[in-house]
Write a protein that binds this DNA or RNA. Sequence first.
DNA 1: CGGGTAGTACTACGTCGTGTAGAGGTGGGT
DNA 2: ACCCACCTCTACACGACGTAGTACTACCCG
Lengths: 118, 118
Amino acid sequence: MKGLGELERSIMDILWAHDGPLTAREVGRLMADRDLAPTTVMTVLDRLTRKGFLNRTRDGRAWRYEPGASRDAYVAELMLEALDMTGDRSAALTRFAQTVSGTEAEILRKALTELEEE
Amino acid sequence: MKGLGELERSIMDILWAHDGPLTAREVGRLMADRDLAPTTVMTVLDRLTRKGFLNRTRDGRAWRYEPGASRDAYVAELMLEALDMTGDRSAALTRFAQTVSGTEAEILRKALTELEEE
DNA sequence: CGGGTAGTACTACGTCGTGTAGAGGTGGGT
DNA sequence: ACCCACCTCTACACGACGTAGTACTACCCG
């Protein structure tokens, strides 16, 4: 895959947080605090599309963008990618399990248990 | 933290795979296939040290480099970092648990169980 | 004692990803 | 006929990284 830059991530965050596809203009409005040129937003949306993070469909002259995958899926994939970096996946996984907080260990346990039951 | 480049990662791999600190020259020799200039290796070792991935100690005129953390710790940290990217850690964790292979789920389960027992 | 050798520090340069944005084209509404 | 909203293309600066040269120093060999 590939990591995202800071602006790219902000924009993905907006699209992930929003149900339904948005136009560049709409995204820009939702990021009014950053005061970006409209073309900047368009450029980034375009790059994200090219990288496969977004899908776009026509809406009149405008494009509407929406995430190709959920943020959770993206995060999970990043985690797997990190995991791939090691020769010893088992050791890394164990290490990871030991590192997460108690609450999170609980969540993991529950998810794994449910998995098992299916 | 911060990701590593490709060369940087190769060098970390060598140091991670090796017990005990190595000099730049030794690292270079272990990467003979890439035929890098000695200074290249030194530069990268230096950058890695500055980034906090390596510690170095004097050995005569030379420096000896060794990882500040194990590869597993690094991988686990990367995974946690990915996890931090989301607002909903629980959802991402669940997603992650569902995504890993059966074998890996088993490893996770075991690690979590052992955790619990302590 | 003088030179090669190993090692260091410093500097440099090309490339790529990313943030940022302007210029110019085009189609629809008034 | 014109303006506006949008698009596409192109551009540029900056920082990270791969890669390496240069210059300086300390030591061993003969």
